[in-house]
Simulated assay, not measured.
Amino acid sequence: MSDQVPLEPKIPVGISACLTGQKVRYNGGHKQSRYCLNVLEDCFAFEPFCPEVAIGLGIPRDPIRLVGLEGEHPRAVGTTDPEMDVTDDLMRVGKDFVERHRHLRGFILMKGSPSCGMERVKVYHPNGVPHHADRGVFVRALREFYPELPLEEEARMNDAVLRENFIARVFAYDDWMNSIASEPSYHAILQFHSRQKYLLMAHHYEGYRELGRYLAEAHDTPIEEVKQHYLGRFMHHMAHKATRKTHTNVLQHILGYLKRELDSDCKQEMLDSIEQYRLGHVHLVVPLTLLKHYVKRFGTDYIRQQTYLNPHPHELGLRNYI
């Protein structure tokens, strides 16, 4: 895909610097990601960052690890010199990073890192024995100071469902930033909710209903409060993984808007395709391609504008594997 014409405009996304090939790891190496550089770079403008280098740790360096008891925030300390505690430094650069990078639409992280690991980072008991798991300190700062920012570990994107989930969130957040962030209005938020309706429903049906009820009652609420509440809850609900069951539900809902226009044979063909997907015999792209064909021919403007039909560039082929 790297030799194709780049998809425009590129979306700004943060990334652990080692994943871009920069030799910033504790051992002087890198963890270059072919998928990020050969595929996602066609639509993402990556902004590399290494929090450990940012706090002044050298290359190579004594590695750090998380130490602490379950139920408390672990500390990031040196493996050979436990007196070297860089936790506060990592939280500080994390907060500073957020203040300078509010334009980002997502961040791709290095798995297992005591600074950048998103989850299941090994935490050691003070006696030196592996004890439980937590998130890296830099990620803790991102979650605290920029909770709506979509995060994902590069290694987890080997899972097709997690990969599609993250990229759909990035593009949805980009839509929000482009259409709401600079000039927020109640009408603009309603329009955003309207076009994101079925994508949100696929990720979390109850979340879709919750936000619909909220907006119906939020007319007199200050717009900044509506904006903050809606975005936080929207991104929270979008983090849920869509499933074959929820995709099937959405496909059937959209088909319902076309039932008067389709003859019985076309309708049955569509229903059979959805059922084959529900049973796991075909990928989502199969019923979706057929549905998009009918939406283009017979759909209303309301249905055609649904981001569920095209949540990310088709060139990425994300729905070919889920």
Rank of each mutant, 00 (worst) to 15 (best):
C50W: 02
C50Q: 06
C50R: 04
E52A: 05
E52D: 07
V53R: 02
A54W: 03
I55D: 01
G56F: 13
L57M: 15
G58Q: 13
G58L: 13
G58Y: 00
G58N: 09
I59R: 05
P60A: 07
P60V: 11
R61A: 10
R61P: 14
D62M: 13
I64C: 12
I64H: 02
I64P: 02
I64Y: 01
R65T: 10
R65L: 13
R65K: 15
L66A: 06
L66Q: 08
V67S: 06
G68E: 04
G68C: 04
G68V: 05
G68Y: 03
L69E: 14
L69W: 08
E70R: 10
G71V: 07
G71I: 09
H73P: 12
P74W: 06
P74L: 06
R75M: 08
R75L: 12
R75Y: 04
A76D: 06
V77Q: 10
G78D: 07
G78E: 11
G78F: 04
G78M: 05
G78R: 02
T79W: 03
T79Q: 15
T80Q: 14
D81S: 09
D81L: 00
D81N: 13
P82H: 09
P82V: 08
P82I: 05
M84T: 13
M84A: 06
D85R: 02
D85H: 07
V86C: 13
V86T: 08
T87A: 03
T87M: 00
T87G: 02
T87L: 06
D88R: 14
D88A: 15
D88I: 06
D88S: 15
D88T: 13
D89H: 09
D89T: 00
